[in-house]
C-alpha cells in the first residue's frame, strides 16, 4: 500500500489528478480504518490530506461559515464562532461517536463517506450548506442533496477533492434531534435537523434511509403556520408518509416511520417555541 502525504493542496490535487481512482483519499481515516480492519477494502494507495494545513481552517467570512475539509469534528464543535453563530451545527458535530473519533474525523470525510447514520450531513443540509469540490477543471459548488447520492455514494469525481464546506448565515431558529433506540451511545435510529428563517423552513430526516430525507415541497406548504399544532402534526405525518425507511438492528422500517412522525413534530415544536 502506497502512502502519499502531500504537503499542500496543490500537490494533493496533482496527485489526485494523476492517480484518480487508484488512490483512496485519507482524511481522518476513522471510516477507512473500520473498512480496512474488517477486510472490506485493501486500497493499493492512500492519499493522505493530513499535512495539508490550508484545509484545516474554520472561519467566518461575510456572515458565511467556511469549514475546511480537514477541520475535525472536535474543532467544529468547540469553535467559538460556530458555537455562537451555528449552535445547531456545533451540537450535531458534538454528538458524533466519541471524543476520540471526533478528534480525528473530519468535515470532508463525513460528507465524502456518506454514511447514512452520521449526524452532520442532515444538519448541514438543513442549514443549506454547500460543498466545494475542486478538480483539474476548477471548482464547483454542490448542495448536500446533490453531493450524497445514496449509501456511501457521492457525486465527487475521481479527480476531485472536497476542499471546503460553506454554510450560509444561520437561520433564526434551528434544532437537531437524535433518537437512539438502544444504548445511550448507539448510532441514531432517526435524526431530525430543522431550520426556520428567511430562507424558509427546512426539515431533514437522517439515519432512517440511505441518504438524508428532505421534502422542500412539504415544508414550503407548511412554513407559514408552524405556530399551529395541527399544521406541525400534519407536516410530521406527511414526512412520515413520504420517507422510505430502512430496517436494521436499531428498528424496523415501520417503527422508524412512526418515530419519524414523532421526532419531526417535536423538532417543529422546538422551532415554534
Amino acid at each position: 500500500m502506497r502512502w502519499h502525504a502531500p504537503a499542500d493542496l496543490e500537490e494533493a490535487l496533482l496527485l489526485r489528478g494523476v492517480h484518480g481512482e487508484d488512490v483512496t483519499v485519507h482524511a481522518g481515516g476513522t471510516f477507512l480504518g473500520i473498512l480496512m480492519n474488517q477486510g472490506l477494502i485493501a486500497p493499493p494507495a492512500l492519499l493522505s490530506l493530513g499535512r495539508v494545513a490550508e484545509l484545516r481552517g474554520i472561519e467566518v467570512a461575510r456572515g458565511e461559515l467556511r469549514l475546511g475539509a480537514m477541520a475535525t469534528h472536535l474543532a467544529v464543535e468547540r469553535h467559538p464562532e460556530v458555537r455562537e453563530g451555528w449552535p445547531m451545527l456545533a451540537r450535531a458535530f458534538g454528538l458524533v461517536a466519541s471524543r476520540r473519533v471526533r478528534a480525528v474525523a473530519t468535515v470532508g470525510g463525513v460528507l465524502a463517506d456518506a454514511d447514512y447514520a452520521s449526524d452532520p450531513p442532515a444538519a448541514l443540509s438543513a442549514l443549506g450548506a454547500r460543498a466545494i469540490l475542486r478538480g483539474p477543471g476548477g471548482e464547483r459548488s454542490v448542495s448536500i442533496e446533490e453531493l450524497i447520492l445514496g449509501y456511501y455514494t457521492t457525486c465527487i469525481r475521481p479527480d476531485e477533492l472536497l476542499v471546503e464546506v460553506r454554510v450560509p448565515p444561520a437561520p433564526e431558529r434551528a434544532v437537531y434531534r437524535k433518537f437512539v433506540s438502544r444504548s445511550s451511545e448507539d448510532r441514531p435510529c432517526v435524526t431530525v435537523a430543522a431550520a426556520h428563517g428567511a430562507a424558509g423552513l427546512a426539515v431533514v430526516v437522517g439515519a432512517l434511509a440511505e441518504r438524508p430525507q428532505r421534502f422542500d415541497d412539504l415544508c414550503a406548504a407548511a412554513a407559514g403556520d408552524l405556530a399551529a399544532a395541527g399544521a406541525r402534526e400534519q407536516l410530521a405525518q406527511d414526512y412520515a408518509a413520504r420517507v422510505e425507511p430502512i430496517g436494521d438492528a436499531r428498528g424496523s422500517a415501520a417503527y422508524r416511520r412512526r418515530v419519524c412522525a414523532v421526532e419531526v413534530r417535536r423538532a417543529l415544536e422546538a422551532l415554534a417555541a
Binding site: 480504518g33 492512500l46 493530513g50 472536535l74 476520540r100 478528534a103
Partner: peptide, 20 residues
C-alpha cells in the same frame, strides 16, 4: 485509546504513518 499530541484517539483506526 492513546493520546496523540493532546487528544485521545483510537489507535485501532489510526495508521501508524499518521503519527509521524
Amino acid at each position: 485509546a492513546v493520546i496523540v499530541d493532546d487528544e485521545p484517539v483510537s489507535a485501532c483506526l489510526m495508521l501508524a504513518a499518521q503519527v509521524d
